[in-house]
């Protein structure tokens, strides 16, 4: 039986996100629905999350008008759908520092946060550059970095330098420098606890947005049947994005269905899912021993 349950929880979505932003070369292909999600990993006595979303309090109107983001709900409401509260979360892995991933740390008072030190250091560098180079700051809220100062003061922010195995038993952090962002990170859950796991899952952060990025053209979730395509929005190198995609796919033995892109709407047809009363999706990827399903009766 798996050691960890894994749920991907939608907390908001944009109904009109330009497709070229998520798939490199998808020019003039219009818009898609882009769910905003975080991932919960529960087991071995821990409740961990990958990313924490953003706090809508300050941005609702602006995002609604500029990004067409709607239906935001708080972690309290979203986590309740799987029987948890934000206070239950003890560990948070931050895939990168964009506002929709690192923007709501204040709602998780008992968690220790892990982030790549490079992610902070290179944002500091980028922020020192002239206004004409502002592209390099896309998606960053300086307020989120400021909230990180308080986490660091409370000794609740761990700046990681590179890969790190068994941060929690069977959960590994993988650095992906100069990809989607300067210090992005992806995560492996070895759900049988074994070093050469036969039940591994990759939580891809924004290194993969859609199945197409994985070369999964048919959407079958098997071995790639097409070419890898980098995500559309990146400040790093396309080469690094392709290389890290290969690393992920290899780690799961070529079974692309085991690489989980949180912004992928079609997760709902690949894994057991339900839509909540609030119109948000709960997707159940794995269930640990003794854990009851949160998507079926």
């Amino acid at each position: 039986m798996p050691d960890y349950s894994i749920w991907i929880l939608e907390y908001s979505y944009s109904n009109k996100f330009h497709k070229s932003g998520v798939i490199y070369s998808a020019h003039n292909e219009g818009y898609i629905k882009l769910p905003y999600c975080y991932t919960v990993i529960k087991g071995n006595g821990h409740v961990a999350m990958v990313d924490v979303g953003y706090n809508n309090k300050d941005y609702a109107k602006e995002f609604a008008e500029s990004l067409f983001v709607e239906n935001w709900h708080s972690p309290k409401v979203v986590l309740a759908e799987i029987g948890l509260a934000p206070e239950d979360v003890d560990t948070v892995f931050i895939s990168h520092a964009h506002f929709d991933h690192f923007g709501n740390v204040g709602d998780f008072p008992n968690a220790t946060f892990y982030i790549q030190e490079r992610e902070i250091a290179k944002w500091v560098w980028a922020m020192s550059l002239p206004e004409r180079m502002r592209f390099l700051l896309t998606g960053i809220d300086p307020g989120d970095i400021l909230n990180g100062v308080e986490l660091a003061r409370q000794r609740r922010l761990v700046c990681v330098d590179g890969d790190m195995d068994d941060v929690l038993p069977g959960i590994d952090l993988h650095a992906a420098p100069d990809t989607h962002t300067y210090g992005s990170m992806w995560f492996a859950v070895r759900n049988d606890g074994k070093r050469n796991s036969q039940d591994a899952w990759v939580l891809a952060g924004d290194l993969i947005y859609k199945f197409e990025n994985l070369g999964d053209v048919s959407g079958n979730g098997g071995a790639p049947d097409g070419r890898y395509l980098p995500v559309g929005l990146a400040v790093g190198s396309q080469t690094n994005l392709i290389n890290v995609t290969e690393e992920m796919v290899k780690l799961v033995g070529g079974e692309t269905r085991r690489v989980l892109p949180p912004h992928e709407e079609r997760l709902k047809s690949r894994y057991p899912s339900r839509i909540t009363r609030d119109g948000l999706r709960v997707t159940e990827v794995a269930l640990a021993h003794g854990e009851k399903s949160r998507v079926t009766d």
Binding site: I120, W123, E131, L137, P142, L146, G148, V149
Partner: peptide, 23 residues
């Protein structure tokens, strides 16, 4: 916009430095 952008960048830059100083 340029004034605001500079202040925003300074805020982020100094905040990031404070994290690095501590870490």
């Amino acid at each position: 916009e340029a004034v605001f952008g500079n202040l925003r960048a300074l805020l982020g830059q100094i905040s990031g430095l404070l994290i690095l100083i501590q870490s």
